[in-house]
Design a protein around this nucleic acid. Structure first.
Lengths: 336, 336
DNA sequence: TTGTAAGCGTTATCAG
DNA sequence: CTGATAACGCTTACAA
């Protein structure tokens, strides 16, 4: 039933011109008489003609496609609403520039460099990719413009975008300090990830800036998920000098921490102040609502898209990596 | 820096065979001597050869690409984690079959039929598309295999997938009834959408099956979001004979309803039992935790992918539309 | 079992 | 301003 797709030849024939003329019209050249342009456009509309992306890619050697690697780990990443919003921002940014997104789906574990070449994508966005992924090196070596999210890759054709994790962590600690807390602990995210490491760094930096005594036992590593937050909190509560405030590197861990504290008979925020990170939807809906550091997820996606287009079109965009601004959102859990 | 992409000709030359032989090897034909196959594969690996998708698409007239229309409305859809999970399921299902996803990003409002032809996608998945979208008709007429999510399109090359909304609503009502409730209200979703309409239909059907008296004033329409749930609840509470239980057609509306009830001084579930729909992440994390109808979002995505591949590869898959099973998850808000 | 050659639908170069 | 024509990289009869 699929109506036959019409080609440039038909448009040419039906409007009495050559294919090159049609091609020129469709590529916006201006050395075309207004009359023929109109005629061509008209018959094209009649035939519902759409140029073949494949043919075009073949000769122009670029596809107007941006490849997206979205590692949806067994369970973890999927649950994280983060990527969805980033994707929306990305889609918008590259859409206005006339590109479409190619989401690599084929299951070959991590063969994305080959697939990028296969489709001749003009650039690649990496999301949820592990820094240890061996494909990463291959991709960078291939010279394909690349932007990673939350992973610090750099090179002449590669860059990354991430939120201001250090600044956000400092904001959180400062907030707690202003509330009078001096025994502030942290539940860090996976330290193998850039956000995990940076948020811990920010935590330490602000402690130092505030001249608060750093204590190793006040630093616990989680995996960004709720259960790990609860586990870490239980350990913190076992300390002889337990913290009165805790900065969790994700909202989910913060929720876990709150639960663990309550199970131990503590009141949040009266006995324990908690600050999270991300400002995911549930942050405002749990009880107590979560004070947190808001990431601009849409903005991260937009920045990734624009940064990538810079690399793709403008040659290397020398613009250094600018972390995306974050914002402290005060709610109940910190008692602020 | 981008290393030149090697072509089939180079592979052919370097391994001393013709291009057609290389082509045969890569297309898995078996009329190739084991010796040459090995040789070809070896040099291909050496050159890091990846066949050109564009060239292949041009001659085979199919792209191994599935187009995805993901309407991320100004705010609403984005916030809904639903699509992310469906996308993951879809990606997996079509990935194992060797397809990739093409996410239409270009901003032309709804020109997706043209874009589908432009890229010669083998099929299209529609998500978040409005039933009134004029492009919808064009797409179906174009004869491109299409599967919609939560939108009942049908045709020789089109079908859809959705959860068992009617059954889910009935489950919810029955649960409330078993708990002793007889004054059960509903906060429906947008009735212009398939899930909204079906959940209301299920609500009514179960009421009738249970021989409960239907009351028009116990039916309120929301828009799936929290605030609309709260607003609807406030109205329900104003009735002289207020309901003792309410089935909300989304978890977000259920949360809104709970809040409104509490603001009115009612206790949930003691004074009012609430059941939601979806089982999004926050359902288990709010207080009280939400009794709800769980949708298998991943399953919806997988079903969409498999159904589409059926249409694409097997010709029209005559399999009638099977709603995806849902499940009652009992938590605190219903007092169950 | 393998090679030759004609497309697939565009764009780009070169004439006119 | 417009038309031929040679690529672009691959698949597929058709030969050998």
């Amino acid at each position: 039933m699929a109506r036959k797709i019409s080609t440039i030849h038909e448009v040419a024939r039906r409007s009495g011109v050559s294919v090159s003329t049609v091609s020129r019209v469709f590529n916006g050249y201006d050395d075309i008489s207004e009359a023929t342009r109109k005629r061509v456009l008209a018959t094209a509309r009649e035939l519902d003609y759409a140029p073949s992306a494949a043919a075009r890619t073949l000769v122009k050697r670029r596809s107007q496609l941006i490849g997206v690697v979205l590692n949806t780990g067994e369970e973890q990443d999927i649950r994280h609403p983060f990527f969805q919003e980033v994707l929306v921002g990305l889609k918008h940014a590259i859409g206005v520039a006339g590109y479409d997104l190619l989401l690599f789906a084929t299951e070959q574990p991590h063969e994305y460099t080959r697939r990028a070449r296969h489709h001749r994508v003009d650039g690649v966005v990496l999301m949820g990719v592990d820094r240890a992924d061996p494909e990463l090196r291959k991709l960078l070596e291939a010279g394909i413009p690349t932007i990673a999210v939350d992973l610090d890759v750099e090179g002449s054709h590669a860059s990354y975008v991430t939120s201001d994790n250090v600044g956000g962590a400092r904001l959180a600690v400062r907030h707690l300090h202003e509330l009078g807390h001096t025994q502030i602990a942290t539940i860090a995210g996976l330290l193998g990830t850039k956000p995990g490491a940076d948020r811990l760094a920010g935590f330490r930096a602000e402690l130092e800036a505030l001249k608060l005594k750093p204590r190793r036992e006040y630093e616990r590593e989680g995996d960004f998920n709720m259960e790990s937050g609860a586990a870490a909190m239980r350990q913190l509560l076992r300390l002889r000098k337990r913290p009165t405030a805790v900065f969790a590197a994700s909202d989910l861990m913060a929720v876990g921490a709150v639960r663990a504290a309550r199970e131990a008979g503590l009141d949040v925020p009266a006995d324990l102040a908690v600050v999270g990170f991300d400002d995911i939807q549930l942050a405002s809906l749990v009880t107590p609502s979560l004070t947190t550091i808001r990431q601009d997820k849409l903005g991260v996606g937009t920045a990734a898209g624009e940064g990538l287009l810079g690399l793709v079109e403008g040659g290397r965009s020398k613009r250094s990596v600018q972390p995306m601004p974050v914002e402290l959102v005060v709610r109940e859990s910190s008692g602020g």
